[in-house]
Amino acid sequence: MRTIIHDLNENNLKKLKFNKNDKIINALECENHCIGCFSCWTKHPTKCIYQDNFSNIASYIKDSNEFIIITDNKFGCFSSSVKKVLERCIGYVLPYFTIRDNMIHHKLRYNKQLSLKVYVYGNINKEEIMSFNALTRAVSINIGTTKYKAYFINNIKEIDNVYIN
């Protein structure tokens, strides 16, 4: 199973092939954003305080072997729509701290090696590519995986050439 979070419109989404059991999450449909209450850590582990279609994504990621993010480039970061969903998945890790790669990180809730793929579309300059590579690496350390890669697609029309099913 794969968890795929994206901010594509219908036309671009149609170009991509998905597997039957993929969990596809359209970030453009997410209304509620994280309010930093940490309820998903301290009250109802993994579940967001907002009860909507996006309240349980951490458990989809847990059941996946691949975690795919498809996002518009915004200054070398995820689009705010994708970011809104990602912040509601922090229950995937534990609140507790530990030392990993010589720095403090959150402890892992699950003992698994996910593969993280980030597909970035839209115009992007050198500095933004550097930021995105650093961001992808940082996210991979935080979710405890060594398998990660960021792909850059300048022209959204070519997304189906880069995206690997």
Binding site: H33, C34, G36, K74, F75, C77, F78, S79, S80, K83, K84, L86, E87, I90, L135, A138, V139, N142
Partner: peptide
Amino acid sequence: LYVDSPNYSTLSLLE
């Protein structure tokens, strides 16, 4: 800092 980047609301304002 949320998920190694500016939090959603900040990012949305920057956009």
